[in-house]
Design a protein around this nucleic acid. Structure first.
Length: 824
RNA sequence: GGGGGAAUGGCGGAAUCGGCAGACGCAUCGGACUUAAAAUCCGAAGCCUUCGAUGGCGUGGGGGUUCGAGCCCCCCUUCCCCCACCA
């Protein structure tokens, strides 16, 4: 690798990168103008990061470089481009980092954002930094509080005593989405269910619209499917079963047509009826089972559930559509932990003939199985000893007999409604969003609890409700919120009446700030409102939103929910916030494992011949691809790469690795190839041995149409520009970089044939990808203005088509001879 | 178990519509330049066979459609990601 030293005519990227960055900034090149610009608008947004202590890695940078290329090209095409960046700084990650380091989150957050900002600028990303936002700054969360009030006013925020996920380790409640297999998403700590009075947001009121409006979005189908799955709409019926001992129990089913096949009933162990209906003989067993289910973590419960356990309560229920005298009408009631208290009614009618889980349970406990749906020809059913859960024809079901499943469902519902024992019902997996946390580092709620127990929102002019300064912001051991300890802050008065009041000591979850940040970017300096109508009607919606697929449900669902509420409140003019969504792939890394499959940290590995070996011992190792991980020492910091190879080489490599959407491994050995390309490009423009800053023939326009080698370059350039243009359709910028390489290889053979006009167009097209070197050569060519502000060059259609092609000859589909066209 | 994505040289990856598989880069080998090395430039290179052209085989495996399949259809294998007892 050549050193960044020696003659000023060598390619030394570090010597000019910051200079051109300063020129862009001075020219206001990256400033989004806004209403009245006289240009079409384009809003390209990155998912803003948590400013974590470990800084930015090359995986973040992948998406950021991709959007930067789009933003830069759109500017050159004459758009008023909004390309902003900010910090999702509130929430658990920031707080935990602060706790780990024993310092105040304000301080660590500021340090981390400063580091992120420096790293992003180092990459030469063209953000409009005048619009930077930080969700943890009072100027931002003042508006988050205001918008929460909008939800509150519209009846979408309510307090409820709900069984919530409680994490003992984190001392806080978590949302359903933040708990995976009974463990916290962050930190993987065990969580348990516990009743607590909490703020809830009524996202379920928007379930149908969140589902329906997915259809019109230009989003990856996989993300839409995940959202649909998460919302989990299912249509069926609720049915009330009378209990022999008095009272009734309500179940939810998607298959009311199988009611005649219900041979038992199962309640979740937590179901409140259990206590009342259990018979004396069964009480001991039932209580032991319920207690065991409670004490088990959700993880154990799901792990052990491969075997379906459960206990008979001793109680019986009556099938509401059968004559009570019919012996089939009387069915036993069990409890089992495969029935979830949190879904439907927490109780089911079990139809073992036509539900896999019920089938398994019935077999294990010797319960009756009855066939009430005959499978279509060729499908296995009870006659073959298998459970059939598909659609067929109803049998042994009285009035339903002979009906196909859809008709049988409708008939069953009609019968239930006629007799007043059930109704058609739509159920969602989606639950209301648990919106409070017993944490310090979040937005305080803009509300007061009055002495009479009422809750009143604060007026706008009393906002923000500032987070009180606290030295000890760690969670209290008893689980109460840290803010409860700020007595002077909690005890206050209603500014309107002077009545004594208490502040709410919970804070909002980390997602709150990210539920509207794309709107704030439109009007980031607005002190009075979160954003003006004028700015929103100009910039909205986001034209291109790029980020990782890991936000498929949580952030993207919450953000859509808030946006729809804003739409209903007349604050925004579109139903959806993000018109086009694109997920960049994951940057993985090579890792190494030994014979036994144990992973070896990459700093203990060296190349050996074709393979790899452990340093020292020389033991042979296998190369595999994994996620980047600190423990494997294969996390890469962009700073290091940029320091060694320059910013443009870093950007090009990020794109050259493969299509933006693909997951692909980071391979440091490939980076020099991108650097070498830039050096070769440089030498096409600059004679390193000469004194002049640029080849002198590039300083003047060539006369007439290009001839000879110049004409060949003209054709090559047209082809390059066409391929570059095309790469923007699917964000496969690797092909664009390859096209530039191919052109430069051509031009290297005859640098004197490259005309000034060709050089200008090449640099302009390269500018979004490798903006610094393009700008430097532009300046050396004494071109007017900034390369980055040049109109985007289009392929000349006269030259984009080959005027000579090789025609392959096939005989019987086999290639027989390729006539070699004479090379002139 | 369900859903999504993927599989092409030693490696990362190219290949509008079904039409010359392997662009571009890495690693490798050869040559030029050099006292030498680095850098640079020029060139070779899928695999098998062959002195060489020719020839044969080749896009995870098996079948199919077609004049022609990396690409379309059916079956299978492996890997990655997400969800997972949702009645």
């Amino acid at each position: 690798m050549s050193q960044d030293a020696g003659s000023p005519n060598q390619y030394q990227p570090r010597s000019f990168e910051s200079r051109h960055q300063a020129r862009w900034e001075e020219a206001g090149l990256h400033r989004a103008v806004g209403p009245g610009s006289g240009k079409p608008k384009y809003y390209v947004l990155d998912m803003f990061p948590y400013p974590s202590g470990s800084g930015l890695h090359v995986g973040h940078a992948l998406g950021y470089v991709g959007t930067d290329i789009v933003a830069r090209k759109k500017r050159m095409e004459g758009y008023d481009v909004l390309h902003p960046m900010g910090w999702d700084a509130f929430g658990l990650p920031a707080e935990q980092y602060a706790i780990q380091t024993g310092r105040h989150p304000r301080q660590t957050t500021d340090e981390n954002t400063a580091n992120f900002r420096r790293q992003l600028k180092n990459i030469g990303l063209s953000y409009d930094w005048s619009r930077e936002v930080d969700t943890s700054h009072e100027g931002y969360y003042k508006h988050t509080q205001k918008l929460f009030k909008t939800l509150h006013e519209r009846g979408l925020a309510y307090r409820a005593e709900v069984p919530v996920w409680w994490c003992e380790e984190l001392k806080t409640v978590l949302a359903n989405e933040e708990v995976i297999n009974g463990r916290s998403e962050r930190g993987n700590h065990p969580c348990v269910r516990r009743p607590l009075k909490q703020w809830m947001l009524k996202i379920t009121a928007y379930a149908d619209r969140l589902l329906a409006d997915l259809d019109g979005l230009d989003w990856p189908e996989s993300i839409k499917i995940q959202q649909r799955e998460w919302i989990g709409r299912s249509e069926g019926a609720s049915i009330r079963f009378r209990l022999e001992a008095g009272g009734e129990v309500e179940v939810y089913t998607t298959r009311p047509d199988t009611l005649w096949g219900a041979t038992f009933m199962v309640l979740a162990p937590e179901h409140p009826l259990v206590e009342r209906i259990v018979t004396a003989a069964q009480r001991g067993a039932v209580e032991a089972y319920a207690a065991a289910a409670r004490s088990k973590s959700e993880l154990e419960r799901t792990e052990l559930s491969k075997e379906k356990t459960g206990v008979f309560t001793g109680a019986h229920a009556l099938n509401p559509l059968l004559d009570p005298a019919d012996p089939l009408a009387r069915i036993p009631v069990w409890i089992a932990d495969y029935v979830l208290w949190g879904y439907g009614t927490g109780a089911i009618m079990a139809v073992p003939g036509h539900d896999e889980r019920d089938f398994e349970f019935a077999r294990k406990h010797g319960l009756a199985v009855r066939e009430v749906v005959r499978p279509p020809q060729g499908e296995k059913g009870l006659a073959d000893g298998a459970c059939f859960s598909g659609e067929g024809v109803a049998v042994a079901s009285g009035p339903l007999d002979g009906l196909a499943t859809p008709a049988a469902k409708a008939r069953a519902i009609a019968l239930l409604e006629e007799r007043g024992v059930g109704a058609k019902k739509t159920t969602y997996k989606l639950r209301d969003w648990l919106f409070s946390r017993q944490r310090y580092w979040g937005e305080p709620f803009p509300l007061l609890h009055l002495e009479d127990g009422t809750v009143v929102p604060l007026p706008d002019d009393a906002l923000p409700v500032l987070l009180p300064a606290m030295d000890d912001f760690k969670p209290s051991p008893d689980g109460s919120a840290p803010l409860a300890r700020a007595k002077d802050w909690v005890e206050t008065r209603d500014p309107r009446t002077g009545a004594k009041a208490r502040r709410d000591t919970d804070t909002m979850p980390g997602w709150a700030g990210s539920c509207w940040y794309w709107l704030r970017f439109m009007d980031a300096a607005n002190d009075q409102q979160p954003f003006s109508k004028e700015a929103e009607s100009y910039w909205g919606p986001v034209d291109l939103y790029v980020g990782g697929a890991s936000h498929a449900v949580m952030h993207l669902l919450y953000a859509r929910f808030w946006h729809k509420v804003f739409f209903d409140a007349g604050l925004v003019h579109t139903k959806e916030p993000f018109q086009k969504l694109f997920n960049q792939g994951m940057v993985t890394a090579f890792a190494y494992e030994d014979e036994s499959g144990r992973l070896v940290a990459s700093d203990e590995v060296e190349a050996k011949g074709d393979g790899f070996a452990r340093k020292g011992s020389g033991e042979g190792l296998f190369q595999i691809v994994t996620k980047m991980a600190k423990s494997l020492k294969n996390v890469v910091n962009p700073d290091d790469i940029i320091e060694e190879y320059g910013c443009d080489a870093f950007r090009l490599y990020e794109m050259f690795m493969g299509p933006l959407a693909d997951s692909k491994p980071w391979n440091p050995r490939d980076i020099p190839g991108c650097r070498r390309f830039l050096e070769r490009l440089w030498r096409v423009f600059v004679d390193e041995k000469a004194e002049e800053p640029v080849r002198t023939h590039l300083l003047a326009d060539a006369a007439g149409e290009p001839q000879g080698e110049s004409l060949a370059l003209e054709k090559a350039l047209a082809k390059t520009l066409a391929r570059v243009e095309e790469s923007f359709t699917h964000f496969n910028f690797n092909v664009a970089v390859a096209a530039f390489m191919t052109f430069v290889n051509e031009a290297t053979k005859a640098p004197q044939a490259l005309t000034r006009s060709q050089g200008r167009r090449l640099l302009a097209a390269l500018s979004p990808f490798a903006p610094h070197v393009a700008e430097e050569l532009w300046q050396r060519m004494r071109c007017e203005g900034l390369c980055a502000a040049e109109p985007w060059p289009r392929a000349d259609p006269r030259h984009a088509i080959d005027d000579e092609i090789d025609l392959p000859v096939q005989v019987n589909g086999k290639l027989r001879a390729t006539p070699k066209a004479p090379k002139d």
